[in-house]
Design a protein around this nucleic acid. Structure first.
Lengths: 249, 249
DNA sequence: CAGGCGGCTTGATCTTGGTCAAGGGTAAGC
DNA sequence: GCTTACCCTTGACCAAGATCAAGCCGCCTG
């Protein structure tokens, strides 16, 4: 993975270094399958550049003019909305292979902040070029629509979580979702480092950080997981799923 | 407005009666502005038929195969997700000029139920035809993307409401949002009939029906609104907005 | 017109999660 | 290596909203 970068001797401007989509191991997450070589080349040409974002920096902020969407190559992000009175709502956590910035299409302004929770790199997908290309490449168009739609469905899931679940159910759902997405990327399902703080988890789940902390402790007491700061091991996936289905009290 | 229909003497099968988009007074809500006559004709051709839905019936249900999205001509809908254990989360209320069904694009299956809360009529927009046409008509493509994106942003708003607001703030936000959307359709801003039950409002807002009822009563005591069953008058819009900004206790 | 039902309101009580506070661990910076 | 700052945990207490319960209103149906 990091072979490429550690072996390089000659200094290269990585911003200009082109890692073609056609070569990217995240391809199946970002692009439709079944594109012809020629079509893939055109996609490669569209994604002209990449951008590195340091931990803590914003990829974009609410109010920025919308020009592109972003495919995450490496790193981990949160998106959030800040209310006038300062309250924060984290609307999602995004990892490699996922797409950021679609909130801006509707108004040509970004409506939320996207912040790197660890050093990250994204592919910049200029949206007008994407629209143009997807008018010509039908599978690309279809894929874009699917990505947009899945975001809507994902949001419905979060609404359901916030509207109907109690604290421990929410955290169980959160851990299981994270685990599942890591598996899809080839990582271990049961052991991982959280990139976000308890407060950010709490904001996402509609809970206070103390409640998140207590729920972690409770899960640990019950033998469902082990917690050491941000290092989580899931010991009993089935048990976590039961927490989810155990509705009410 | 209703001149057209009241003046018709000859009985006509309204299912076959074509009310062209080009003639529809909701056009500016469904379609981009600036289409040429020729383009509008092609859109008219695409939207082949309409469908009436009786109060209480579903336009589509979770699990149905996805084939079309729907533009509401008349009536009022709710969309909801039912969890395995029976819990319901209402994900939105939709009125004339709004678009339903975009949750199905991602998986080719609808992921929620769309239920008419009053007798309704929708325009059926076959999605493959819409994709095809939007590959040719750039403003149509752009518009579709904006509609999808705005749905995402709307969902973020609901997530914020569910994640950070207390009961009375939620209800105030709900009433103001409803009022604003009615105004955009030429209705009175301050007086309207709720089409949904307290329980459905509660599900949408992540509250129990009793809490919704109490919040209504509280607003009435405070002189912000009058409530008679489902008939609402907003007496003090500014006051409701203050409830929203008054954060915490 | 009577009866029944669905939906709404209101009160009393309980529970979950929020709030406030103290203390400890870890990692980054001097 | 020490200090500092951030993050996390845990406890005690509190309050918002859920739950349980009773009764009412208005509408639909027979």
């Amino acid at each position: 993975m990091s072979n490429e970068s550690t072996q390089k001797i000659i200094p290269i401007d990585t911003h200009k270094l082109k890692v073609a989509c056609s070569q990217c191991n995240l391809r199946e997450l970002c692009l439709p399958i079944g594109l012809s070589d020629q079509e893939l080349t055109r996609v490669d040409d569209m994604i002209g550049s990449r951008r590195k974002i340091k931990r803590g920096q914003n990829l974009y902020s609410a109010g920025d003019t919308f020009e592109a969407i972003y495919a995450i190559r490496t790193g981990f992000f949160k998106t959030d909305v800040i209310l006038e009175d300062g309250r924060e709502q984290v609307t999602g956590f995004q990892m490699a292979g996922e797409v950021l910035g679609m909130d801006g299409i509707g108004t040509d302004l970004h409506t939320c902040n996207a912040t790197a929770l660890e050093d990250a790199e994204v592919c910049i997908i200029p949206f007008d070029q994407l629209e143009s290309l997807s008018r010509e490449i039908e599978p690309l168009q279809r894929h874009l629509h699917k990505v947009l739609s899945r975001e809507i469905v994902r949001d419905h899931g979060v609404m359901t979580l916030l509207g109907t679940m109690r604290a421990e159910e929410r955290l169980a759902a959160f851990l299981l979702n994270l685990s599942q997405r890591l598996v899809a990327r080839g990582y271990a399902a049961t052991e991982f480092h959280l990139r976000m703080t308890r407060e950010e988890i709490g904001s996402y789940l509609g809970l206070k950080l103390e409640t998140v902390s207590r729920a972690f402790s409770r899960f640990q007491e019950d033998g469902l997981i082990t917690v050491q700061q941000k290092h989580i091991c899931i010991l009993d996936t089935a048990g976590l799923k039961q927490v989810l289905n155990h509705q009410a009290c």
